[in-house]
Amino acid sequence: MSQIVENKICDSQEMGLILARIAEEIVARNQGHQKLALVGILTRGVCLARRLQRIIKDRSGRELPLGILDITLYRDDLSHATHHPVLRKTEIPFSLDDATVILVDDVLYTGRTVRSAMDGLIDFGRPQSIQLAVLVDRGCRELPIAADYVGIEVPASPQDRVMVRVEESDGFDLVTVNPRSSFEGESANGI
């Protein structure tokens, strides 16, 4: 536990401020778009998308539809996965055709998750545009992908471990960065 506290990037209060700023940016940039929707990537991306949905409603009165996306079936590393993936249900209860979709995830790293997510989204329809919102951008991209809304930039090497915890799934909000050696055995967050 002490290690996590030492390498803290942001806590619950700071996370709230960051999400509020992102929400504001989303609303500002998409003033004219009627069909605006949020789609969270399982698991923590969904939690963050829900918070954004709530903040946007509180601040601007706009109620954006929310979708849930499981990217397991679109991953490009299925055969290499050392553990068997857990498959969860994708729920997109609205039409994506001509919509502006805000894809939400916790960490942007190699970009492969986002690529998989875009493949998945396109199977549901033809969005007018897709924008990407992430809480943390840790760099080290392997694909030409960039986020439209970034909470915090945390330059980290591939050996480092960036962890995002959110209250809904972990019991508390916290972002940490640690050298991998101090966290042997835990699974990576974000691909």
Binding site: D70, T72, L73, Y74, K89, E91, D123
Partner: peptide, 20 residues
């Protein structure tokens, strides 16, 4: 059974295909 539960959703999509 739980995984199959998730696959049911694909049958309801307009494009019933995933690249898995």
């Amino acid at each position: 059974l739980e995984s199959a539960e998730s696959f049911k959703e694909i049958a309801e999509r307009p494009l019933k295909k995933v690249p898995a």
